[in-house]
Amino acid sequence: MSTPPDLLRIESSIEGRSPCITLHGELDHRTAPVLEEHVRRALDTAHPHLVFDVRLLVFCDSAGLSVLIGAYRRATRHGGTVVLRGLHPSLQRVLRLTGVEALFTIHPTRESDEVLDALGGHGEPA
Rank of each mutant, 00 (worst) to 15 (best):
T3I: 05
P5K: 06
L7D: 04
L7Y: 00
L8A: 00
L8G: 00
R9H: 04
I10P: 03
E11N: 13
E11M: 10
S13T: 09
S13A: 11
E15W: 12
S18N: 03
P19T: 12
L23Y: 09
H24F: 12
G25I: 05
E26M: 07
H29F: 14
H29T: 10
R30E: 15
R30D: 15
T31A: 02
T31P: 01
A32L: 00
V34R: 07
V34Y: 11
V34A: 04
E37H: 13
E37C: 09
V39I: 09
R40K: 15
R40T: 15
R40Q: 15
R41M: 14
A42K: 04
L43F: 08
L43G: 12
D44Y: 06
A46G: 15
A46K: 15
H47A: 06
H47N: 13
H47L: 13
P48Y: 03
H49M: 14
H49N: 14
V54T: 07
L56D: 15
L57G: 08
L57A: 10
L57I: 00
F59A: 05
C60T: 01
S62C: 14
S62M: 12
A63D: 10
A63V: 03
G64S: 05
L65T: 06
L65W: 00
S66D: 05
S66T: 03
I69F: 04
G70E: 02
Y72G: 06
T76K: 06
R77M: 08
R77C: 12
H78P: 11
G80E: 04
G80F: 00
T81W: 04
V82G: 11
V83Y: 01
L87R: 03
L87W: 02
S90R: 10
Q92L: 10
R93M: 01
V94Q: 00
L95R: 04
L95V: 02
L95I: 01
T98F: 05
T98N: 01
T98S: 06
G99E: 11
V100W: 08
E101I: 03
E101F: 03
E101G: 01
I106C: 11
T109F: 00
R110H: 03
R110T: 11
R110I: 02
E111L: 11
S112I: 00
V115A: 15
A118D: 13
A118C: 12
L119T: 00
A126C: 14
A126Q: 14
A126S: 14
